[in-house]
């Protein structure tokens, strides 16, 4: 339709206040808002045309807003019920679960988030959710004794899987593995400050992170070294 319309000879209009020709299919001037006067002569110039983005934008993100409303209402109802019944604040746990679910859903729902961002944030959010659950249920430290090192182990495995799947650009995941080493210092610090009470798993995972990275660096040879050279160029 648009193309057919564009093929036609175009009858432009003029704004008598601004003294400009207006090529749009409109009745009033986009500059001053005055009503346009039809030209008697046919104009050779055709309007370029643009899609109607304005209409589409209004409909976007409606699903996310509905979901947000459901989450907020559900959380409020849980807290209100808990308040009326009294006793322990059990409603905090489902509220945290709802918040976790909503944030993870938003992370995956947004098409502009890349897979790396999704993977990393899923780890971070899941871990935060576990720690919050642990704190809410009496802080028996299962989240930092076991969940934190296991998450790091899974992170390393994810790095290796990504290297295999995307083997043409495997070296670009070297940084991914390197971050596992840096993050691995966190449980070591927690051991030092006696927050982590079962150190074996955390220490083993840190050692495995270092081994995986060094193995990749040595086996990867020139490509691995070039990648690190690029990443760390000053």
């Amino acid at each position: 339709m648009l193309l057919l319309r564009r093929m036609e000879f175009f009858m432009s209009k003029t704004c008598s206040r601004c003294k400009v020709k207006v090529l749009d299919h409109t009745e009033y001037c986009p500059l001053c808002g005055g009503v346009l006067k039809k030209d008697t002569k046919v104009d050779k110039r055709r309007p370029m045309g643009y899609p109607d983005v304005y209409g589409l934008t209004r409909k976007r993100n409606l699903a996310l807003r509905i979901l947000l409303a459901i989450c907020v209402v559900a959380g409020f109802l849980l807290l209100a019920t808990n308040y009326m019944i009294g006793g322990r604040w059990w409603s905090v746990i489902p509220c945290i679960a709802i918040l976790y679910g909503y944030v993870v859903f938003s992370l995956y729902f947004n098409p502009t988030n890349g897979y790396m961002k999704r993977i990393i944030w899923t780890f971070v959010l899941t871990l935060a959710f576990m720690i919050a659950l642990d704190i809410c249920t009496g802080f028996y430290r299962w989240s930092i004794n076991y969940c934190l090192p296991l998450a790091l182990l899974l992170y390393n495995i994810a790095g290796i899987v990504l290297m295999i799947v995307n083997h043409r650009r495997w070296e670009s995941y070297m940084i991914f593995l390197m971050t596992a080493i840096f993050v691995g210092f966190v449980p070591l610090g927690l051991i030092h400050f006696k927050v982590v009470t079962e150190p074996i798993l955390s220490q083993s995972v840190f050692i495995s992170s270092v081994c995986i990275f060094l193995g990749t660096l040595i086996i990867g040879g020139g490509r691995a070294r070039t990648e690190l050279g690029r990443r760390f160029h000053v």
């Binding site: 400009v20 020709k21 090529l23 749009d24 009033y28 643009y50």
Partner: peptide
């Protein structure tokens, strides 16, 4: 507000230049 654009095109018109404008339609919503 399109006052600045209007002023630019009116000035050009006053200086003897014919001006034809077109938009992407958002100013008519």
């Amino acid at each position: 507000d399109t006052a600045v654009q209007m002023g630019v095109f009116r000035q050009m018109q006053q200086d003897g230049m014919d001006v034809a404008v077109e938009t992407n339609g958002v100013f008519y919503e």
